[in-house]
Design a protein around this nucleic acid. Structure first.
Length: 485
RNA sequence: GGCCCCAUAGUGAAGUGGUUAACACAUCAGCCUUUCACGCUGAAGACGGGGGUUCGAAUCCCCCUGGGGUCACCA
């Protein structure tokens, strides 16, 4: 009987959900759920200096929004709490002392000053300083006594010689020389554990079976193995994830701009598309399927599909995928997500919601583009008269002017400003003038929109503007042209 | 610098000794068309380099190169 799979997402409360963190959360969730297991949220706040107000809510909200529902966590409870590390202080302290008794760790009384001094002296040699293990030799009895009234940290006693190996499910078997391992600090002088200690203790106590984290922890894994062994605990399955790069060679980071989930979300990328896209950054289903709902990801996910090399975040592909999601929406649903962007253009003016949505929903990749696509609705933009001519059908300015005047005359007569009427009016113009269709439709559209490309054709643009505005703009452009010729 | 890891088109990514080396985004061309977009069709584009092993290597081994990670009282 296999143990129940349990994974945990363990962010620091920094008030920011980096896209890479989100992906880690996603994969962690998928590993649990694709095995009918539990997904746990644990907050790693052992660095007091880093605490950001409101960060917890931010994490809860983001996971809620993206659908990564956790079975246990600070706000939902569970049998393995508390789920916030700063509330587990006593647990770490007890375990650190157990380790001292077992001889796998020792208290270190070196002050930061002495360390800095030591670092300064020896750094001349090869550039990399490592703790000189001064306190390691203090007899345990004496050390225990000094702990009563001195400030100390607890350090892990690493083997001096030999090698340590560990297995990672994506990277395989990895061996490192023990001389590389520093006697790292487990418990800080403030009594809180370092990540290096807390993660081991918590993962064991919370019965985490698959430890999912970034490759930045790969080189620390042997130290964790040594810790598990010292405690006599079962070693979990390690799943180290490659980083997401902004461009080849450059890691995606907060500093390089819009690398956070909320930035994308607020720009008009759908959460489903973001999740879908990042799922494919570093993981492949082994089939050609690319569009996945979260449920489908749970179904399709396998650790085997995880990639060993870093993946570059390609905004262009995210755009495309977001467009696919938008197009797959019904017009009604599209309106719901696009509403706030469309309203930026129409403000309080009334408009036919479904009509506008229908016009937009095949043409938009990112919702925030909408105001720009419709900006001509607000007012006639400045534009170069040259674009009024339709080159392909050999229409020049003079001919365009004729088309415009004739069109204006017909449009003025219309009682009903509806598509069928507009169509028959302009088709009549085309027939009377005996010209090609674009020779009329193109100039009219440009004359009233000032744009070479618009969502929808002339009739759509005319409907968007209404009769009065259309005629007003036709007059303006006609006048400009008359003065120009 | 030491140690560890990685390496298929611009990007993601199939492929695990024998393939015309998939597929998707992007690019380019054509079709559709009243512009744009959607959609459809097609094109160009890759196994980082060098040695082995093998009848045969993108696939296995070694070296080089390139990239990444790590070496905190941060996670």
């Amino acid at each position: 009987m296999m143990k129940r799979v349990r994974t945990r997402f363990a962010p620091s409360p920094t008030g920011y959900m980096h896209i890479g963190n989100l992906r880690t959360a996603l994969y962690t969730y998928l590993i649990a759920k694709s095995n009918d297991g539990d997904f746990v949220l644990r907050i790693e706040d052992t660095d007091q200096d880093r605490y950001v107000e409101g960060a917890l809510e931010f994490i809860y909200d983001t996971l809620e929004l993206t659908g990564l529902k956790y079975d246990e966590g600070p706000d939902v409870g569970g049998d393995f709490g508390p789920y916030i590390q700063s509330e587990r202080k006593d647990i770490y302290k007890k375990h650190a002392h157990d380790l001292i008794e077992k001889g796998a760790a020792y208290p270190c009384f070196c002050t930061k000053d002495r360390l800095a001094e030591s670092r300064k002296e020896s750094s001349i040699k090869d550039g990399v300083w490592r703790y000189d293990r001064k306190c390691r030799e203090i007899p345990q009895e004496e050390a225990l006594a000094r702990m009563e009234n001195e400030v100390y940290v607890v350090r892990q006693k690493m083997p001096i010689e030999g090698k340590t190996s560990f297995d990672d499910i994506v990277f395989g078997h990895i061996t490192v020389p023990n001389e590389e391992l520093e006697d790292q600090i487990l418990l800080k002088a403030d009594g809180l554990p370092t990540y290096n200690f807390a993660n081991v203790v918590d993962d064991h106590l919370m019965e985490i079976t698959h430890v999912v984290r970034g490759t930045e922890y790969l080189s620390s894994a042997p130290k964790y193995n040594l810790l598990y062994e010292a405690f006599g605990w079962e070693i979990p399955t390690y799943v180290h994830l490659t980083p997401i790069m902004r461009e080849p060679g450059k890691k995606l980071s907060k500093r390089s701009g819009d690398a956070s989930f909320s930035d994308f979300y607020e720009k008009g990328y759908l959460k489903e598309a973001i999740i879908n896209y990042i799922a494919l950054l570093g993981w492949g289903p082994g089939t050609n399927q690319e569009i996945f709902t979260l449920e489908e990801l749970v179904e399709a996910f396998s650790i085997k599909g995880l990639s060993k090399s870093p993946a570059v975040f390609d905004v262009e592909k995210l755009r495309w995928m977001n467009g696919v999601y938008l197009r797959n929406l019904s017009v009604e649903d599209f309106y719901e997500v696009a509403k706030k962007y469309i309203d930026e253009i129409f403000k309080s003016k009334s408009y036919d919601k479904m009509y506008v949505s229908d016009l937009l929903h095949n043409r938009v990749d990112v919702l925030s583009e909408i105001p720009e696509m419709l900006d001509f609705v607000k007012e006639l933009p400045e534009f170069d008269l040259e674009i009024v001519q339709h080159q392909k059908s050999g229409t020049d300015l003079a001919k365009s002017l004729v088309s415009l005047k004739a069109s204006k005359a017909e449009l003025e007569k219309l009682e009903n400003w509806e598509k069928p009427e507009l169509m028959s009016a302009l088709k009549g113009v085309i027939k009377n003038l005996d010209v090609k269709t674009p020779a009329v439709l193109w100039p009219v559209r440009i004359a009233v929109s000032g744009r070479e490309s618009t969502p929808g054709g002339v009739y759509d643009v005319l409907l968007l503007l209404g009769k009065d505005e259309t005629l007003k703009r036709l007059n303006i452009t006609i006048k400009r042209m008359e003065e120009g010729i």
